[in-house]
Simulated assay, not measured.
Amino acid sequence: MATPLIELTDVSRRYDGGPPALSEVSLTVAPGEAVAVLGPSGSGKSTVLNLIAGLDHPDTGAVTVSGVRVDELGEAASARYRRATIGMVFQFFNLLDDLTVADNVVLPARLAGMARGTAHRRATELLETLGVARHARSHPGRLSGGERQRVAVARALMNRPALLLADEPTGALDSAAGEDVMALLDDLHADGQTIVLVTHDLALARACATRTVQLADGRIASDTAAEPVR
C-alpha cells in the first residue's frame, strides 16, 4: 500500500473556548486521490484544509504531509512548505487586481526563486492549457468568474505542487462556470494530481472526487469511496 501523502492522526482543534472545530480526527489521503470533504457550516471542513496547508495548527494530534510534520513548522518554514508542496484555490479567487493575469500566475514561482524566463514559460504553458492565454496581459477584474478561477488554478499549479487544495472552488460561480471548473478539476485528477476540496456542493463532489469524507460536529461521520461521474 502506498505511503499516504496526507496523514492526520487524532487531530483536535478548538477556538476561543468554544466547542471543538475538530475532535480526534484521523484521515489519510493517498497520492493521486481526489477527496471531497463535505459537511454543513461549522462542521470543521475549512479547519481540515487550514491544518493541511499549515495555516493553522492543531491543539493535539499530528499533521503529516509528504513526510513533513506540518504541525511542528514555524511561520517561515510553513511558508516554504506551502510554496514547495501546496497549491491553493479559493472561493473568491484571491487574485491581485493590480497585477496582470500573467504576473499573478508567475508570482508563486518568483517567490520560490524560479528564474524569470523559466517562470514566464511555465505560466504561458499553464494559461494555454487552461484556455485563458488570451487574457495574459489583462487584469483579473476584466475577466468573468470562471476565467478568474482558471487563472487561480494556473497560479496554484505554477510550482508543480504535490497537493492541490480547493476551498469551495465553485461557490462564487454561476452554474455554467461552475461546471467548467468541475471539468477542469476532474481533468487534473485524471492526470494524476492529488486534490482535496471542501465544498457544500454535492454535484462538485460527485464530478471530481473518487472519495467523500462527511464531517459533522468536528468528527468524521462517513468516509466513502466512489467512482467519479465522467
Rank of each mutant, 00 (worst) to 15 (best):
V65I: 07
A112V: 04
L27K: 00
D223K: 11
R206C: 11
L185K: 00
G192N: 05
A172F: 06
V35D: 04
H139E: 09
L163C: 07
L202I: 12
M182K: 08
Q214C: 12
M1G: 11
A53D: 13
V89P: 00
Y15A: 10
L197K: 09
L107S: 08
V25T: 06
V65M: 03
P20A: 01
H135N: 10
V25S: 03
A133E: 12
T224H: 11
V35E: 04
V70A: 04
V198Q: 03
H57V: 12
G32K: 01
L165C: 05
L22P: 06
A34T: 10
D56F: 10
V101G: 02
E227F: 12
D71A: 12
V101H: 05
A136V: 00
G54A: 06
M1T: 15
G131F: 04
P228Q: 00
L99F: 13
P40K: 15
V11A: 04
Q91E: 00
S12V: 04
L163E: 01
G146F: 01
L8Y: 13
F92P: 07
V68Q: 13
E147W: 01
D59L: 04
A30P: 06
A152G: 04
D98C: 09
R219F: 12
F90Q: 04
E179T: 14
H135C: 11
D103R: 02
E179V: 11
L157R: 01
D187S: 15
V196C: 01
T9N: 13
L38G: 10
E128L: 10
I195P: 02
A166M: 07
V153E: 03
T124N: 07
P58I: 02
A221V: 09
D191M: 08
Q214H: 15
G61T: 06
R137F: 10
A156L: 13
V63H: 05
E33H: 06
P140D: 09
L27C: 03
D167P: 02
R134L: 12
A53I: 09
T3A: 13
L184Y: 08
T28R: 07
E24T: 14
